[in-house]
């Protein structure tokens, strides 16, 4: 489903942040992406949620070369990808419930059709009593949970999360991970970027390690990702 072939990426005329990345993520898989700060994890996710285009190589998503997508197709693809951003990217003028409902609203789904779903989602992440609260009044952990609820509410095919448990307590981290596992059981592809080595080790899932913009296969050179 997700295929990176010799992908390179740089911001404007800066240095390459990703070089010769080859990665194959089958549909329905659950993987971690890890590596030190500045290794290119966030850039790789940005390529995946189509916020940027590769400057070299080819990325195939849902069987399509992403560089050939029209603007409308990009929007449609994004609706099939739920993203949890490290900085949450919640809209401060909307309530928590309106933020969670955003992917459904932009997809043209009627409020009546998703009202219960949004309520249930917020209750699940422990924010059932804060549906009408706006993000500036929420703590960091609460914002993160709203962002997670927003990423999964539309039941996307792929869920990308950048440090999704970074701002929550261990109990909530376990609940969030349990949600991702459940989504994966339903056939969703999950890709989590994380520094949390104990958690990564605990789940025993395939890991892609990024180092200096390339995939580290443990042998000192770049190779095909998704090593277990």
């Amino acid at each position: 489903m997700i295929l990176f072939e010799n992908v390179g990426f740089r911001y404007d005329r800066g240095a390459e942040v990703l070089q010769n990345v080859n990665l194959e993520i089958p549909a329905g898989s659950f993987q971690f992406i890890t590596g030190p700060s500045g290794a290119g994890k966030s850039s790789l996710l940005r390529l995946l949620y189509l916020d940027e285009k590769p400057t070299a190589g080819r990325i195939s998503l849902f069987g399509r070369d992403v560089t050939t997508l029209t603007r409308d197709e990009i929007a449609w693809f994004r609706r099939r990808i739920g993203v949890v951003f490290q900085d949450f990217r919640l809209l401060d003028h909307l309530t928590a419930a309106e933020n969670v409902a955003l992917p459904l609203t932009v997809a043209g789904v009627r409020e009546m059709a998703y009202r219960d779903n949004v309520t249930e989602m917020l209750q699940w992440v422990g924010l059932g009593d804060k549906m009408d609260v706006r993000p500036p009044e929420l703590s960091g952990g609460e914002k993160q949970r709203v962002a997670i609820a927003r990423a999964v509410v539309a039941s996307p095919d792929i869920i990308l999360a950048d440090e999704p448990t970074g701002s929550v307590d261990p109990d909530m981290a376990e609940r969030i991970m349990a949600l991702f596992v459940e989504m994966n059981r339903l056939g969703k592809t999950i890709l989590l970027a994380s520094h949390d080595v104990p958690m990564i080790e605990r789940y025993k899932l395939p890991i892609t390690i990024l180092k200096d913009g390339t995939i580290d296969d443990g042998m000192g050179h770049s190779g095909r990702g998704a090593a277990a």
């Binding site: 603007r71 994004r78 809209l91 932009v106 043209g108």
Partner: peptide, 16 residues
């Protein structure tokens, strides 16, 4: 800008 960016990343088309 940030609002529009959030809408786009949520899958909003230009016409929306």
């Amino acid at each position: 800008k940030s609002t529009i960016e959030a809408l786009r990343l949520a899958g909003a088309e230009d016409r929306f």
